[in-house]
């Protein structure tokens, strides 16, 4: 073992390192398997399960003539966004901090903030792919119409992703270890999914529950997506609720986040 290397003639492509970081983070995300299985695979499986229940394809008066399956597609999209942002993201980030990955990056020209950015980029990219997959499968296999207000739908998905990622970052900022982050993320996931209508569609909830749902990060998201599916722009308050969570929790996370 002798070390004689001199400067490499090879020029590095991206000076920022963000591109390569994002590709690396995506690879790790896939290798970890938890994210792909729970955040991408499970919503698709649930779609297939719901799609094969005959009663899910009958128009219902409660939903203004929509079928239960049509109501559930946005719920499953919210499910995927929430799992990726609440379980995957904080677990990885808190784990990186715990293991000293962020600390090690502090000693390089790139710095740990860019790893955080790469994580968010990967998270959004995977979310987008999952959303498209869910919409396409629902359309092709079960004849669920694509969102009638596509731009509104995309805006709804982006606001929902920002909103949930802020919650995830807040968890990562306050949890001491990867394991704690995972536990807290999972603990938040279930009530949020309840108010997003995973067990009882929002339209069938009793009044008080429905009001709470309107104010939760995921409840607002699902309702915005439902409106866009039906051909309307998301409500102002729906976007406002999501923006408020994104802003407040995002800023709090930025203030509380420690690199080590």
């Amino acid at each position: 073992m002798s070390v004689t290397t001199t400067a490499a003639p090879r020029a590095t492509g991206s000076r920022s390192g963000l591109g390569r970081l994002a590709v690396t983070e995506l690879r790790l995300f896939i290798r970890e398997r938890v994210g792909p299985i729970w955040g991408v695979g499970l919503p698709l499986v649930l779609l297939v399960v719901f799609g094969s229940i005959p009663s899910f394809k009958e128009p219902q008066r409660d939903f203004g003539g929509a079928t239960k399956l049509e109501i559930y597609v946005p719920v499953l999209i919210a499910f995927s966004i929430a799992l990726l942002a609440l379980s995957s993201l904080p677990t990885v980030l808190a784990g990186y901090r715990e293991k000293g990955v962020l600390r090690r990056l502090r000693t390089t020209p790139v710095g740990p903030a860019r790893l955080l950015t790469a994580q968010l980029v990967v998270n959004v990219a995977v979310t987008m792919v999952t959303v498209i997959a869910l919409l396409v499968v629902a359309r092709v296999a079960y004849g669920v119409a694509l969102p009638k207000q596509p731009a509104g739908f995309v805006i709804g998905v982006l606001f929902a992703a920002a909103d949930l990622q802020a919650v995830g970052l807040f968890v990562a900022a306050t949890a001491g270890s990867g394991r704690t982050a995972q536990a807290v993320g999972t603990l938040l996931f279930f009530p949020m999914m309840f108010f997003a209508g995973l067990w009882i569609p929002i339209a069938q909830m009793p009044g008080p529950l429905r009001s709470i749902s309107h104010g939760t990060p995921l409840g607002a998201a699902v309702q915005a997506l439902l409106r866009a599916s039906a051909g309307h722009w998301p409500n102002g308050w729906q976007l406002l609720v999501m923006a408020a969570y994104a802003l407040v929790l995002g800023l709090a996370a930025a203030k509380l986040f420690r690199w080590e």
Partner: peptide, 30 residues
Amino acid sequence: VQLQDGALPDRLKVGEALALYSSFYRAPAD
């Protein structure tokens, strides 16, 4: 800098780690 504690994700491969870290610098070693 070489830090006391291990500081890479477990599933990152050796070659990937080196390629990644070399992309951080202006004039990296080969």
